[in-house]
Amino acid sequence: MEPIIIEGTPKTPSVKFDATEGTFEIKGRSIPENSVEFYKPLNEWLDNYMQVPLDKTVVNIRLEYFNTSSSKCILDVFKRLEAIHKSKHDVEINWFYEEDDEDMLEAGEDYDSIIKVPFKMIEIVE
């Protein structure tokens, strides 16, 4: 599978999904008006990856801001990772939040309570 590499913009995150390494990263700001349009190709790519996942997949989410329209699309990403986890493959989700950003920590905890994959909350100390 070809990797997905997308440069970040002021409203959309940078994305690096690499199927040969099994490492996925979403980083930056996710506040577009139409989040479905942005995330649709990512979820389609994950649908393919789910067919032949690596033994271990590591996912790093390093978001500074995200809007509520992105929140559902990000949940859809996690639901695909949950399916990989259910199929007896190791999945690790690292949720990064900046020091004192209690809202971003809480958002990670929301996903952790919905998705049956262990989340690791990692505080970024500047």
């Binding site: 139409n34 479905v36 509520t68 329209s69 929140s71 559902k72 949940l75 809480e106 929301d110």
Partner: peptide, 28 residues
């Protein structure tokens, strides 16, 4: 918080987003 998670997890997204999630987010 629970209402937010309920809508996030169970409502389908439309081009307008998720019903009321923005207001709940502001409240939170």
């Amino acid at each position: 918080k629970e209402l937010y998670k309920e809508i996030l997890n169970h409502q389908e997204i439309t081009e307008k987003g998720l019903g009321g999630l923005g207001l709940l987010d502001i409240a939170r």
